[in-house]
Design a protein around this nucleic acid. Structure first.
Lengths: 340, 340
DNA sequence: GATTAGCACTCAGTAAATATGAGTGCTAAT
DNA sequence: ATTAGCACTCATATTTACTGAGTGCTAATC
């Protein structure tokens, strides 16, 4: 267990290191107003903290830097998660709503805003359209054999795909199939389209034996429309200002990793479903993010569960500020009503 | 005017430097099979080439490197633009068509392919939808006051926007307005929508005095649908392998510039309309691309003018190979038919 | 007159040698 | 329990010397 003074010292080391990115020495600490002990005393406590694995030294004659364990202790014991500054949240909400009422734009703004507030890089996973319900399917003919399948969801989300048919389209057959699809599938979550259609197809086969081929092709195409989750990156440039990313060896893996949209999406989707979650250094298990910490949170917009937002900075990140800003943003989003 | 030998030497210097990224000395050159002169002779010619501004030395005791003027001469006199390897073009075409028949996917593949072939970064500006003609407008209601405006073009391109109305939608009024818009605007290039609508509105005002407000709002929304040109980046990572971008000072401006989608689009659109155009070093006038050369070309797909593709590498880029690959790719695209 | 051999000179890059100073751990005094 | 004092460590900066690739010029050669 840590003594009062050791706690004070640990906190001072981390706060200092977060600000300066330089190892912190005992003399520097003893000069602080809130630590009125001699440097020798502090040195003794520092040795103890090091024995406990909370801090470490880069080399013999440097000061101490927090270890991952130290950061973990700091985050778990010394950072308050749930302080919402009402006025600030309101202001953030206003800034968000000023930009748009379209959800995808709103999320992008939120990512940008969060990265502006913290100077870290943010990633936001937009509405997962798998959960959206089908509002309408339509086929828009382009020429004899090509058309665009349109899928609109109850959230105003639109997806589409160009289809080329083996044979020319017969207008009434198209209309018939479209009506069939709309009748049977309206309200189905997109993620379940494929499954639901399977159930209906058997019935269809009996009713329209001869035109079955064509219908099947259209149905098939509908199912194959991709439902990509929308991904937004905010403040990618911020990484350039972090002292720990001033060398190519550290910068390159990060940039290569963050540019891989698909992997990024998978990662965000794989995160535990929580309100605010901090992952420190190697905890995240991603090689390219070894020296990064991540603050993630699911968010809701207009009351509905929506997606995930993440904030990525160096392990030496300002956890207190980061967690606070993240809290404010997701609270501001929660309070945002979409219409008007 | 350059002597035969000077030309040989200039060419050798540039070829060598392109490969090694190291200043080329006279002794190195004299050891080449195609230059059977003594190093002293070569030194004399090098001095002349330097006087003419075609090459320069980084410092007294280094070899020579090509100047921008030198590269320009090289590109204008020593690179053949129009050699199409039929078999290779065919192979590239096959690789492209294998991936998709949807134009946007195809362009993305082309950008990726080109960057794979050259190890440079590529940017492709997709179909400029401004030129696409309107095939259909529709409004899909979401609830009482919200709906999605859908715009489909003759090329199968889809754009959309969520609209919030001041007052609830009356179904027949919506239908009436949609029909009006479709009747009057079908076939209009998207770029001219705004202008064309202006002409029609006056007539509409007379005919439907009382519901004019609502109709106007819908029309307004239609016009405001954005027509973003689609932009694809290929091989961004390649830059990391270029020796001239191994330092943050050079890397950072490049990466920051290339990540700015909007600016990138503007830039591509502002390029002169040509088949294949090479811009060397500071010629491009972009500070972040001072040390880069760019090979750009407009391309056509399925016979129709389509967009622009650009290849960005260090000034010390392999112009011959780059120009050739660019030629092959746009030729492969030109020969690609979209249907089937 | 064109080419080449020879030589003094230049200068980036590297390596070894030295100095600096921030910080530590330990011991003895308070 | 705290603190002053001191020897010790080690990354970093500075100096110095060395190396070698490459040049420009001059004089000899073809």
């Amino acid at each position: 267990m840590l003594t009062e003074r050791q706690l004070l010292i640990l906190r001072a080391i981390i706060d200092d290191y977060i600000q300066t990115a330089q190892p912190v020495g005992s003399r520097t600490l003893s000069k602080r107003d809130d630590l009125s002990f001699s440097s020798a005393t502090i040195r003794n406590d520092m040795a103890d903290l090091e024995d406990m694995g909370l801090i470490e030294k880069p080399h013999t004659s440097a000061g101490r830097i927090p270890s991952e364990v130290g950061y973990r202790y700091y985050v778990d014991h010394l950072v308050e998660t749930k302080i919402i500054d009402e006025r600030e949240t309101y202001r953030l909400g206003e800034r968000l709503r000023a930009s748009a009422q379209e959800s995808e734009v709103l999320i992008r703004q939120a990512a940008d805003l969060l990265s502006d507030l913290t100077n870290y890089t943010t990633v936001a996973l937009g509405p997962n359209s798998q959960m959206n319900r089908l509002a309408r399917i339509d086929l828009m003919p382009l020429d004899e054999r090509r058309g665009v399948v349109l899928i609109v969801t109850d959230q105003g989300h639109v997806e589409h795909r160009t289809v080329v048919f083996d044979s020319p389209m017969a207008p009434d057959l198209v209309e018939q199939t479209i009506r069939f699809l709309n009748d049977r599938l309206k309200g189905t979550p997109l993620g379940q389209l494929k499954f639901r259609i399977g159930e209906e197809v058997a019935k269809l086969r009996l009713a329209h034996q001869e035109q079955f081929e064509f219908m099947m092709q259209l149905i098939q195409s509908t199912v194959e429309v991709q439902h990509p989750a929308s991904l937004y990156l905010g403040g990618k440039k911020n990484i350039f200002n972090q002292p720990e990313f001033q060398t190519l060896d550290t910068l390159r893996p990060f940039l290569e990793w963050i540019d891989e949209q698909e992997r990024l999406t998978d990662w965000l989707e794989s995160l535990p479903n929580r309100e605010i979650y901090v992952s420190i250094g190697s905890e995240n298990g991603i090689v390219a993010l070894q020296n990064c910490s991540v603050i993630t949170s699911d968010y809701t917009l207009d009351g509905k569960t929506f997606g995930t937002i993440a904030m990525i900075g160096p392990t030496r990140m300002d956890y207190r500020h980061g967690v606070q800003m993240m809290g404010q943003i997701i609270e501001a989003l929660r309070r945002t009503k979409l219409e008007e």
